[in-house]
Design a protein around this nucleic acid. Sequence first.
DNA 1: GACTTCATTTTTGTTTACAATTTTCAAAAT
DNA 2: ATTTTGAAAATTGTAAACAAAAATGAAGTC
Lengths: 224, 224
Amino acid sequence: MKSPDSRTQADIAFELLQTAIVKGEIPAGQKISEADLMQKFGYGRGPLREALHRLEGRGLIIRKAHSGAKVVSLSVEELIDLYEVREALEGMAARQAARRMHTDEIDDLKRLLESHARQIEEEQGIAYCQREGDFDFHFRIISGSKNQKLSQMLTGELYHLLRLYRYRLSTFSGRPEKAFREHWRIIEALEERDGELAELLMRRHISAARQSIEKRYREGQLKL
Amino acid sequence: MKSPDSRTQADIAFELLQTAIVKGEIPAGQKISEADLMQKFGYGRGPLREALHRLEGRGLIIRKAHSGAKVVSLSVEELIDLYEVREALEGMAARQAARRMHTDEIDDLKRLLESHARQIEEEQGIAYCQREGDFDFHFRIISGSKNQKLSQMLTGELYHLLRLYRYRLSTFSGRPEKAFREHWRIIEALEERDGELAELLMRRHISAARQSIEKRYREGQLKL
DNA sequence: GACTTCATTTTTGTTTACAATTTTCAAAAT
DNA sequence: ATTTTGAAAATTGTAAACAAAAATGAAGTC
């Protein structure tokens, strides 16, 4: 019995397109035509169309009949909206993680953060926030909530959208030590199994990021 | 210049299918084949397939290659997960609504609730929760948050899933007066522009509903 | 010179036919 | 009787041809 694979062309095309959009290889707001995709990926038009429809269902692209599809692009207001949603959901994730994460999972997370601390010292605090480390931290807590729907909504939808803007947002973030301290306090709350505190801290953490974006935008350092 | 419509067959089929699934006309867990749909709706297979792919992207159906598609069906655990997500999101919605709802919107909501109060008196408290009134109340507060992404996630995804189970969940809910009092207190918090309190009350309100479901399930009164 | 009009061209929507996979069911072997 | 095997049937995946709508651009008019 060999692995049935059963991943169809449309499946593969869907994943390729999704990662391409999420990683920014296809920039936000760009029009994408079926003909271009055919030439670029080599798949037939049918599978491509099916992949596009799934992306439409996920809200990553917007289509207009007979006109074409384009990658979504967020206004600042929409980005702020996204951060409010994230604050609510990740706060809840932290609360549940404090209840449901295994002790060894928390220990792992602790070790992860300690390695981040070393990186900060060595690299003079360069860009802690913009590294994958930040995503690792948040991702582990989200998984730790053991709430599949919550994980799905955060990692499957919001983060894909947020990643579109991650590069631009992180270039100026410039608060690595602060973020690190906030992460550390959240872990302490998890260790003490204090869900309420973990939620409060996580919400403050994300709220601070949002306010930083708002401030930079008002000052014209951030253009969308 | 007549309305260009530009709603394609696939668009119409998508909406028809979505409402059919959400309203329970196609029960949860049921297999749906493209041939059946062709015969039932009269559209070609292409448009149907595109609609199915969009539904897949929305998470309302699950497809397996060469095997078919079936409407999602939730386990109790998944239903509980959904309520936790709802608690987080609607809590945030209430907080923002306290800030952003116009005073006359709050007044309207108040009148709505008063008419519900009359209904409860007249009908001996029958099934306040299971009526559209409950949805109206929550929907207005969600809209009142003025957060488009939040509204979209709640009304566009979660509620469609929850509605699948609304009928079964409401049959035994039996806490109309309690729910009404909770609604009333939330409105009071909105009037006082106390976002923190509004969030707290909304979260308790939804948490109570979740606990009621958990209890009924443990007692075997609820089968999924 | 700017605007409108209309035909051309491009792009997407739809249908049809075909290929590939899974499922089903019956017959045969253990 | 249960399991296994194989071919037939049903269903989905893919490709190609066709239809329809929208974008483009040039010609004509004001």
